[in-house]
Design a protein around this nucleic acid. Sequence first.
DNA 1: GACAAATACGAGTATTTACTTGCATTCTCG
DNA 2: CGAGAATGCAAGTAAATACTCGTATTTGTC
Lengths: 208, 208
Amino acid sequence: MPEPGPAEERPVRRQARGLKRMEAILDAAEEEIAEVGFANATTNSVAARAGISPGSLYQFFRNKDEILEGLVRRYETEQGAFWRAHLTDDDAHTEMGALIDRLVDAMVEFKASRPAFWALFHGSATSDRLAEVARDLHEGVAFRLAEVFELRSPHLPPERCLTLARMATAMVRAVMPLVVTAKPEDSPALVEELKTMLRAYLTPALDG
Amino acid sequence: MPEPGPAEERPVRRQARGLKRMEAILDAAEEEIAEVGFANATTNSVAARAGISPGSLYQFFRNKDEILEGLVRRYETEQGAFWRAHLTDDDAHTEMGALIDRLVDAMVEFKASRPAFWALFHGSATSDRLAEVARDLHEGVAFRLAEVFELRSPHLPPERCLTLARMATAMVRAVMPLVVTAKPEDSPALVEELKTMLRAYLTPALDG
DNA sequence: GACAAATACGAGTATTTACTTGCATTCTCG
DNA sequence: CGAGAATGCAAGTAAATACTCGTATTTGTC
């Protein structure tokens, strides 16, 4: 006897066409949210941007929040891949200055390539949900970085490494808006300044 | 002949009662916005919180944005007073470590005393307008700090001082969320960490 | 005291917008 | 093929909410 239950959750078998549509909707939502913020983004407008009707949009996402959720999952995946690519255990042995160089450059490049990501997570934040996810993403990066620190300086207690990693990532996030708003010719100098700061803080703490 | 004009702007002569009401409305709006964000804050709810009717609210603020504007003006005033009190030209001669100590402690205390301020400007930002104002407030602080740096290190070019001041204030802002979200017993350690970082960065640059 | 301006009310309106509904079309798979 | 599922549409609905309106009361000024 198929009890109707609280919310008969039959998963839809998506066709290739549908999956493409979902990506298109997320792209549209990303644009829209980056421009006007999540609260001011209307589902109808997102649908229009994606070139579909409102009804079609709700074929794939049950409500507005679920769109956000979809975006978030996509970001989590991208972010994970990014750090797996740029922060390996080998980095425990690279010289501190070089490591900072590489990581900061990579992050600057990542941000430049995905302005919407930046606008969503660091610009006018757009919802409690996004803020929460942003925190989680940042924590993930800090954890990963802390692991490398532990490999590099086994004599330090793990929680000390985590604190250092949290502080370092917070520094990077703090300076990014300055880099973005600065005149283009001043940006490199600010990035250099950030590296200097990180070196001044991390080198004595880790290698000293 | 009194041409009606585009928008006959007759300023209202507020009575003491009215001014008190306006403050009460701003207090209510501050609470409400801090809790649910500007977009989700309803004017009716703000009115209720302030203990008045929706109609009365619109006696003092022509629309929702004007409430935000009122909040912003209040913050600008408070922020200005705060820095005039805590950052005088005399500080050009106080020892660097002591100066950092004082300023950081003052900021932490300020934030603790006005959680709504923090939620508005550093939490999930709530509107383009707020984000813009936040930038201006931060720039104001950086300018003031840069002036002190110039007095302290006359041999440095002014724009170098401004960069250092911007970086320093950015660092402080970056660490504040960590301090807030950390377990209460860990907060002091993080504040200490922030001071250490600022010393490591600023001392060689200014006094070196 | 009297007049005008300011303050107060709260039911009502107009608009926005998330989401539904009914139906048409296209795909998948036996 | 053909049946059922997935996709597609666009007008429409219901709820939320910024703001108005007509009116009543209080306050400042002469």
